[in-house]
Write a protein that binds this DNA or RNA. Structure first.
Lengths: 141, 141
DNA sequence: TTGACCATGTCAGCATCCTGACATACTCTG
DNA sequence: CAGAGTATGTCAGGATGCTGACATGGTCAA
Protein backbone atom coordinates (compact mmCIF):
# COMPACT_ATOMS: atom_id res chain seq x y z
CA UNK A 1 0.00 0.00 0.00
CA UNK A 2 1.08 3.52 -0.67
CA UNK A 3 2.49 5.39 2.28
CA UNK A 4 -0.43 7.78 2.53
CA UNK A 5 -0.80 9.91 5.65
CA UNK A 6 -3.78 8.54 7.49
CA UNK A 7 -6.95 10.54 7.96
CA UNK A 8 -6.12 13.69 6.08
CA UNK A 9 -9.81 14.00 5.26
CA UNK A 10 -10.77 13.75 8.88
CA UNK A 11 -8.15 16.30 9.91
CA UNK A 12 -9.47 18.58 7.21
CA UNK A 13 -13.00 18.30 8.50
CA UNK A 14 -11.89 18.70 12.08
CA UNK A 15 -9.91 21.85 11.34
CA UNK A 16 -12.67 23.36 9.22
CA UNK A 17 -15.28 22.54 11.85
CA UNK A 18 -13.27 24.21 14.60
CA UNK A 19 -12.43 27.21 12.45
CA UNK A 20 -16.11 27.68 11.65
CA UNK A 21 -16.98 27.45 15.33
CA UNK A 22 -14.37 30.01 16.36
CA UNK A 23 -15.39 32.37 13.59
CA UNK A 24 -19.02 32.06 14.62
CA UNK A 25 -18.08 32.92 18.18
CA UNK A 26 -15.94 35.84 17.08
CA UNK A 27 -18.62 37.28 14.79
CA UNK A 28 -21.53 36.83 17.20
CA UNK A 29 -21.11 40.32 18.76
CA UNK A 30 -21.61 41.79 15.29
CA UNK A 31 -24.71 39.68 14.70
CA UNK A 32 -23.08 38.18 11.63
CA UNK A 33 -22.87 34.54 10.71
CA UNK A 34 -19.86 33.07 8.95
CA UNK A 35 -21.86 32.77 5.75
CA UNK A 36 -22.87 36.41 5.95
CA UNK A 37 -19.28 37.45 6.56
CA UNK A 38 -18.16 35.41 3.55
CA UNK A 39 -20.80 37.09 1.47
CA UNK A 40 -19.69 40.59 2.49
CA UNK A 41 -16.05 39.63 2.03
CA UNK A 42 -16.51 38.50 -1.56
CA UNK A 43 -18.76 41.44 -2.24
CA UNK A 44 -15.86 43.76 -1.47
CA UNK A 45 -13.49 41.77 -3.67
CA UNK A 46 -15.93 41.84 -6.57
CA UNK A 47 -18.35 44.75 -6.32
CA UNK A 48 -21.36 44.38 -8.56
CA UNK A 49 -21.14 40.61 -8.66
CA UNK A 50 -24.34 38.66 -9.27
CA UNK A 51 -25.96 36.57 -6.56
CA UNK A 52 -25.35 33.37 -8.48
CA UNK A 53 -21.62 34.07 -8.79
CA UNK A 54 -21.52 35.00 -5.12
CA UNK A 55 -23.19 31.71 -4.28
CA UNK A 56 -20.54 29.76 -6.16
CA UNK A 57 -17.77 31.67 -4.37
CA UNK A 58 -19.20 30.92 -0.94
CA UNK A 59 -20.22 27.33 -1.59
CA UNK A 60 -23.97 27.68 -1.18
CA UNK A 61 -26.85 27.53 -3.64
CA UNK A 62 -28.32 30.47 -5.51
CA UNK A 63 -31.46 30.13 -3.43
CA UNK A 64 -29.63 30.36 -0.14
CA UNK A 65 -27.57 33.27 -1.35
CA UNK A 66 -30.59 35.23 -2.50
CA UNK A 67 -32.28 34.68 0.85
CA UNK A 68 -29.13 35.78 2.67
CA UNK A 69 -28.72 38.83 0.44
CA UNK A 70 -32.29 39.82 1.23
CA UNK A 71 -31.46 39.74 4.95
CA UNK A 72 -28.37 41.84 4.39
CA UNK A 73 -30.33 44.29 2.27
CA UNK A 74 -32.95 44.56 5.04
CA UNK A 75 -30.13 45.48 7.40
CA UNK A 76 -28.76 48.04 4.95
CA UNK A 77 -25.43 46.27 4.63
CA UNK A 78 -25.92 45.51 0.95
CA UNK A 79 -27.71 47.30 -1.87
CA UNK A 80 -29.05 45.89 -5.09
CA UNK A 81 -31.09 47.51 -7.85
CA UNK A 82 -34.59 46.18 -8.36
CA UNK A 83 -34.08 46.06 -12.10
CA UNK A 84 -31.12 44.99 -14.17
CA UNK A 85 -29.85 47.41 -16.80
CA UNK A 86 -28.97 44.53 -19.06
CA UNK A 87 -29.49 40.85 -18.57
CA UNK A 88 -31.15 39.32 -15.53
CA UNK A 89 -28.25 39.45 -13.09
CA UNK A 90 -28.77 42.02 -10.33
CA UNK A 91 -25.40 43.46 -9.27
CA UNK A 92 -24.96 43.57 -5.48
CA UNK A 93 -22.80 46.15 -3.71
CA UNK A 94 -21.72 46.92 -0.17
CA UNK A 95 -23.26 50.00 1.43
CA UNK A 96 -21.21 52.32 3.63
CA UNK A 97 -22.65 50.61 6.68
CA UNK A 98 -21.83 47.25 5.17
CA UNK A 99 -18.25 48.29 4.54
CA UNK A 100 -17.86 49.36 8.15
CA UNK A 101 -19.36 46.12 9.40
CA UNK A 102 -17.03 44.17 7.15
CA UNK A 103 -14.01 46.07 8.45
CA UNK A 104 -14.91 45.17 12.00
CA UNK A 105 -15.63 41.56 11.05
CA UNK A 106 -12.41 41.28 9.11
CA UNK A 107 -10.37 42.21 12.17
CA UNK A 108 -12.08 39.54 14.24
CA UNK A 109 -11.72 36.90 11.55
CA UNK A 110 -8.06 37.76 10.99
CA UNK A 111 -7.51 37.24 14.70
CA UNK A 112 -9.04 33.78 14.51
CA UNK A 113 -6.94 32.87 11.50
CA UNK A 114 -3.77 34.05 13.20
CA UNK A 115 -4.69 32.00 16.23
CA UNK A 116 -5.19 28.98 13.98
CA UNK A 117 -1.74 29.41 12.44
CA UNK A 118 -0.01 30.34 15.68
CA UNK A 119 1.69 26.97 15.98
CA UNK A 120 3.14 27.09 12.46
CA UNK A 121 6.14 28.92 11.08
CA UNK A 122 5.74 31.12 8.03
CA UNK A 123 7.23 28.37 5.91
CA UNK A 124 4.86 25.78 7.33
CA UNK A 125 1.86 28.06 6.84
CA UNK A 126 2.84 28.57 3.23
CA UNK A 127 3.20 24.82 2.78
CA UNK A 128 -0.24 24.32 4.29
CA UNK A 129 -1.76 26.86 1.92
CA UNK A 130 -0.08 25.24 -1.06
CA UNK A 131 -1.17 21.78 0.05
CA UNK A 132 -4.78 22.87 0.38
CA UNK A 133 -4.68 24.54 -3.02
CA UNK A 134 -3.38 21.31 -4.53
CA UNK A 135 -6.23 19.37 -2.92
CA UNK A 136 -8.78 21.81 -4.31
CA UNK A 137 -7.19 21.50 -7.70
CA UNK A 138 -7.36 17.70 -7.68
CA UNK A 139 -10.98 17.63 -6.49
CA UNK A 140 -12.60 20.08 -8.83
CA UNK A 141 -13.60 19.29 -12.37
CA UNK B 1 2.03 43.23 9.03
CA UNK B 2 3.13 39.67 9.54
CA UNK B 3 3.87 37.73 6.42
CA UNK B 4 0.85 35.47 6.78
CA UNK B 5 -0.24 33.35 3.83
CA UNK B 6 -3.44 34.90 2.58
CA UNK B 7 -6.74 33.11 2.82
CA UNK B 8 -5.76 29.90 4.49
CA UNK B 9 -9.21 29.82 6.05
CA UNK B 10 -10.87 30.15 2.68
CA UNK B 11 -8.67 27.46 1.17
CA UNK B 12 -9.56 25.23 4.10
CA UNK B 13 -13.27 25.74 3.55
CA UNK B 14 -12.92 25.29 -0.19
CA UNK B 15 -11.04 22.02 0.16
CA UNK B 16 -13.40 20.69 2.80
CA UNK B 17 -16.43 21.66 0.75
CA UNK B 18 -15.13 19.90 -2.33
CA UNK B 19 -14.05 16.83 -0.37
CA UNK B 20 -17.52 16.60 1.15
CA UNK B 21 -19.11 16.90 -2.28
CA UNK B 22 -16.92 14.19 -3.80
CA UNK B 23 -17.50 11.88 -0.86
CA UNK B 24 -21.24 12.42 -1.14
CA UNK B 25 -21.10 11.52 -4.82
CA UNK B 26 -18.96 8.46 -4.14
CA UNK B 27 -21.21 7.18 -1.35
CA UNK B 28 -24.51 7.82 -3.15
CA UNK B 29 -24.64 4.34 -4.74
CA UNK B 30 -24.53 2.88 -1.23
CA UNK B 31 -27.34 5.17 -0.03
CA UNK B 32 -25.01 6.55 2.63
CA UNK B 33 -24.40 10.19 3.47
CA UNK B 34 -21.01 11.43 4.58
CA UNK B 35 -22.31 11.83 8.12
CA UNK B 36 -23.57 8.28 8.14
CA UNK B 37 -20.25 7.02 6.85
CA UNK B 38 -18.42 8.96 9.56
CA UNK B 39 -20.71 7.45 12.14
CA UNK B 40 -20.05 3.89 10.95
CA UNK B 41 -16.33 4.60 10.67
CA UNK B 42 -16.02 5.74 14.27
CA UNK B 43 -18.26 2.96 15.40
CA UNK B 44 -15.74 0.47 14.10
CA UNK B 45 -12.87 2.27 15.77
CA UNK B 46 -14.68 2.36 19.08
CA UNK B 47 -17.30 -0.38 19.35
CA UNK B 48 -19.79 0.17 22.15
CA UNK B 49 -19.30 3.93 22.14
CA UNK B 50 -22.20 6.09 23.35
CA UNK B 51 -24.18 8.29 20.98
CA UNK B 52 -23.00 11.44 22.71
CA UNK B 53 -19.34 10.49 22.32
CA UNK B 54 -20.01 9.57 18.70
CA UNK B 55 -21.59 12.97 18.18
CA UNK B 56 -18.49 14.72 19.46
CA UNK B 57 -16.25 12.64 17.20
CA UNK B 58 -18.28 13.48 14.11
CA UNK B 59 -18.92 17.16 14.89
CA UNK B 60 -22.68 17.04 15.23
CA UNK B 61 -25.02 17.40 18.19
CA UNK B 62 -26.29 14.56 20.36
CA UNK B 63 -29.74 15.10 18.91
CA UNK B 64 -28.62 14.76 15.32
CA UNK B 65 -26.55 11.70 16.17
CA UNK B 66 -29.41 9.93 17.92
CA UNK B 67 -31.68 10.62 14.95
CA UNK B 68 -29.02 9.29 12.57
CA UNK B 69 -28.39 6.22 14.71
CA UNK B 70 -32.09 5.46 14.63
CA UNK B 71 -32.02 5.52 10.83
CA UNK B 72 -29.00 3.20 10.78
CA UNK B 73 -30.69 0.87 13.28
CA UNK B 74 -33.80 0.77 11.08
CA UNK B 75 -31.54 -0.31 8.21
CA UNK B 76 -29.90 -2.98 10.37
CA UNK B 77 -26.46 -1.42 10.01
CA UNK B 78 -26.18 -0.64 13.71
CA UNK B 79 -27.49 -2.32 16.85
CA UNK B 80 -28.07 -0.84 20.25
CA UNK B 81 -29.64 -2.33 23.37
CA UNK B 82 -32.90 -0.77 24.51
CA UNK B 83 -31.72 -0.66 28.08
CA UNK B 84 -28.36 0.22 29.57
CA UNK B 85 -26.78 -2.28 31.93
CA UNK B 86 -25.30 0.54 33.94
CA UNK B 87 -25.66 4.27 33.51
CA UNK B 88 -27.74 5.89 30.81
CA UNK B 89 -25.36 5.56 27.88
CA UNK B 90 -26.56 3.03 25.29
CA UNK B 91 -23.56 1.36 23.62
CA UNK B 92 -23.85 1.22 19.82
CA UNK B 93 -22.26 -1.49 17.69
CA UNK B 94 -21.93 -2.32 14.01
CA UNK B 95 -23.93 -5.29 12.76
CA UNK B 96 -22.52 -7.71 10.20
CA UNK B 97 -24.42 -5.88 7.48
CA UNK B 98 -23.09 -2.59 8.80
CA UNK B 99 -19.53 -3.88 8.70
CA UNK B 100 -19.94 -4.95 5.09
CA UNK B 101 -21.44 -1.60 4.14
CA UNK B 102 -18.59 0.18 5.88
CA UNK B 103 -16.01 -1.92 4.02
CA UNK B 104 -17.54 -0.93 0.71
CA UNK B 105 -17.82 2.70 1.76
CA UNK B 106 -14.26 2.77 3.01
CA UNK B 107 -12.96 1.73 -0.39
CA UNK B 108 -14.85 4.51 -2.09
CA UNK B 109 -13.79 7.12 0.45
CA UNK B 110 -10.17 6.03 0.26
CA UNK B 111 -10.34 6.52 -3.47
CA UNK B 112 -11.58 10.08 -3.02
CA UNK B 113 -8.86 10.83 -0.50
CA UNK B 114 -6.19 9.46 -2.82
CA UNK B 115 -7.57 11.59 -5.61
CA UNK B 116 -7.41 14.62 -3.33
CA UNK B 117 -3.76 13.98 -2.51
CA UNK B 118 -2.77 12.95 -6.02
CA UNK B 119 -0.96 16.21 -6.69
CA UNK B 120 1.14 15.99 -3.54
CA UNK B 121 4.26 13.98 -2.78
CA UNK B 122 4.35 11.79 0.31
CA UNK B 123 6.41 14.44 2.06
CA UNK B 124 3.95 17.16 1.13
CA UNK B 125 0.99 15.07 2.22
CA UNK B 126 2.63 14.49 5.57
CA UNK B 127 3.32 18.21 5.91
CA UNK B 128 -0.33 18.92 5.13
CA UNK B 129 -1.49 16.45 7.77
CA UNK B 130 0.85 17.97 10.35
CA UNK B 131 -0.22 21.48 9.46
CA UNK B 132 -3.88 20.61 9.86
CA UNK B 133 -3.20 18.93 13.18
CA UNK B 134 -1.42 22.05 14.38
CA UNK B 135 -4.42 24.17 13.37
CA UNK B 136 -6.77 21.90 15.25
CA UNK B 137 -4.50 22.09 18.26
CA UNK B 138 -4.43 25.86 18.23
CA UNK B 139 -8.18 26.21 17.80
CA UNK B 140 -9.33 23.93 20.55
CA UNK B 141 -9.28 25.33 23.98
C1' DT C 1 -33.93 35.12 -37.91
C1' DT C 2 -34.93 31.13 -35.39
C1' DG C 3 -34.33 27.63 -32.13
C1' DA C 4 -31.30 25.20 -28.86
C1' DC C 5 -28.63 26.21 -24.96
C1' DC C 6 -27.13 28.42 -20.77
C1' DA C 7 -27.34 31.57 -16.75
C1' DT C 8 -30.04 34.07 -13.43
C1' DG C 9 -33.67 34.90 -10.12
C1' DT C 10 -37.54 32.97 -7.73
C1' DC C 11 -41.16 29.82 -5.72
C1' DA C 12 -42.48 25.63 -3.19
C1' DG C 13 -41.43 21.64 -0.49
C1' DC C 14 -38.36 18.91 2.15
C1' DA C 15 -34.29 17.36 4.88
C1' DT C 16 -30.97 18.36 8.09
C1' DC C 17 -29.08 20.31 11.96
C1' DC C 18 -29.28 23.45 15.61
C1' DT C 19 -30.78 25.69 20.27
C1' DG C 20 -33.34 25.23 24.45
C1' DA C 21 -35.27 22.48 27.82
C1' DC C 22 -36.12 18.47 30.76
C1' DA C 23 -35.75 13.87 33.17
C1' DT C 24 -32.64 10.32 34.40
C1' DA C 25 -28.41 8.25 36.18
C1' DC C 26 -23.89 8.39 37.87
C1' DT C 27 -20.04 10.83 40.56
C1' DC C 28 -17.99 13.31 43.99
C1' DT C 29 -17.58 16.68 47.48
C1' DG C 30 -19.13 18.44 52.00
C1' DC D 1 -25.84 10.69 53.64
C1' DA D 2 -27.44 14.85 51.08
C1' DG D 3 -26.58 17.94 47.56
C1' DA D 4 -24.37 19.91 43.61
C1' DG D 5 -22.26 18.87 39.35
C1' DT D 6 -21.85 16.30 35.09
C1' DA D 7 -23.20 13.25 31.26
C1' DT D 8 -26.70 11.00 28.56
C1' DG D 9 -30.94 10.46 26.02
C1' DT D 10 -35.10 12.71 24.45
C1' DC D 11 -38.77 16.13 23.05
C1' DA D 12 -40.30 20.45 20.82
C1' DG D 13 -39.52 24.37 17.93
C1' DG D 14 -37.10 27.01 14.63
C1' DA D 15 -33.42 28.32 11.41
C1' DT D 16 -30.82 27.16 7.55
C1' DG D 17 -29.70 24.93 3.31
C1' DC D 18 -30.88 21.85 -0.34
C1' DT D 19 -33.45 19.75 -4.52
C1' DG D 20 -36.74 20.36 -8.08
C1' DA D 21 -39.08 23.31 -11.02
C1' DC D 22 -40.22 27.38 -13.76
C1' DA D 23 -40.02 31.90 -16.32
C1' DT D 24 -36.97 35.36 -18.04
C1' DG D 25 -33.07 37.21 -20.57
C1' DG D 26 -28.82 36.64 -23.31
C1' DT D 27 -25.80 33.93 -26.55
C1' DC D 28 -24.58 31.28 -30.34
C1' DA D 29 -24.81 28.10 -34.13
C1' DA D 30 -27.59 26.63 -38.13
Amino acid sequence: MVNTPPQVGYALKHAQSLLHLRMEEALRPLYLTVSQYSCLHHLRREPGISAAALARATFVTRQSMNAMLQQLIDRDLVARPSRAESGRALPAMLTAVGTDALDAAQNLVDGVEQRMLAGLSATESAALARGLAACVNSLEE
